[in-house]
Design a protein around this nucleic acid. Structure first.
Lengths: 204, 204
DNA sequence: CATCTCAGCTTACAACTGTACGCTAATTTA
DNA sequence: TAAATTAGCGTACAGTTGTAAGCTGAGATG
């Protein structure tokens, strides 16, 4: 195995170890360099061969989580294209994501309101991508004017993430309940913006 | 000063000291007993004369925050009663609360998605109160059927707290922008549930 | 007044933290 | 093959943590 390969592998071990620690109820700021090193099977000081800081590792993890989020969006789009209600399909896909990658979503959730301004910003950016994509979709597919679509997309994403937070610690039954409620709530917003446009059809 | 009085005073110092530390960007789980003691001007071990744990102090702080939240609701109701749009008044009151008691709101926000299951539960309960009050209001004042009102209230509260999180770190201009967007979004939901009831007037 | 209670203190300790320093052994480069 | 690079290690240290143990002095109680 080449030196570079080996290094990449250890780097992945560190990342995986960190996610492992996040799986229990921990924040990034609450896991120590030594713990991560222990989990990755290296000496504490070897950590520095890969990351300058725990902060640098943290930002890497947020990036990885953002990547997963974007893959989620792609999958949702694919499913929608192959038939099925937009809201139903999106919510179902999202909920599956949360269940399958609970530690990834938990990371985003916690660091979004967390201690580090840098993490908060990084997570906000990822969520903004999410919102932008959704508002593009609403503008193009539903022919809703830009400003209304943006507001609609933002509130929908807020609802989805907030419900997702509840779903994260729920059992299967409760999760289903949350999904169904969320779908109805998203339809309210959808209906609401349409109703608004009927009342004020030339909204700036 | 009587012994009891003195003890109460120190207890308040501890609580105030903890809030002080939360003012900087910290989680409850990230502030140490010794720091709190330092801030309160007592020896570390004296802390135990007042609280069994940092956890016990944490739950006390969440309770205090919940109290502030309920006062907020009362104030909003009073203002609504003395005229002004429900949504506008509520959002304005809420935003003032966030600005004036930013550390209290921050505590609720952080611990809602935080590390400790006990804190999460405690915060969720406080938010649930909030939601219950709002749905009661919607049922009584707007004559909307129970199940729709509950969904409407839940999504409104989710939006308000989520926007509040953004407002927490925003300057005055951005804060105003967030407020205005939030108001429009809440109106979408309001409109949406009314539109839903027009379509399906005998919703279960 | 004598006794009790107890809030707050000092001292102490073991556990853990981040990281500086220098070594080793193996891969890479020339 | 000889030299250079470097991933990973072990040791070490100063700082912080929670908390156990026991003391003190002032307010409470009789």
């Amino acid at each position: 195995m080449s030196r570079q390969e080996q290094k990449q592998k250890t780097r992945q071990n560190i990342i995986a170890g960190a996610f492992q620690l996040l799986n229990e109820n921990r924040t990034l700021s609450a896991i120590s360099l030594r713990e991560v090193a222990r989990e990755a099977g290296i000496a504490p000081t070897s950590f520095y061969r890969h990351f300058k800081d725990m902060d640098e590792l943290g930002l890497t993890l947020v990036d990885e989580a953002g990547l997963a989020l974007r893959q989620l969006m792609r999958q949702a789009r694919r499913r929608i294209a192959s038939g099925g209600g937009v809201i139903d399909t999106s919510v179902d896909t999202f909920m599956e994501f949360i269940s399958a990658n609970s530690n990834v979503f938990r990371l985003l959730l916690r660091e979004h309101t967390g201690t580090s301004a840098a993490y908060r910003l990084a997570v906000s950016r990822e969520i903004q991508h999410f919102t932008d994509e959704l508002s593009d979709y609403i503008i193009e597919q539903l022919r809703i004017p830009h400003d209304v679509a943006v507001l609609q997309a933002e509130s929908m994403v807020r609802l989805v993430f907030s419900a997702g937070a509840d779903a994260l610690e729920a059992d299967t039954i409760l999760k289903n309940d949350i999904s169904e409620r969320l779908k109805r709530q998203l339809r309210f917003i959808q209906l609401g913006s349409l109703a608004y446009l009927q009342i004020m059809p030339d909204s700036k």
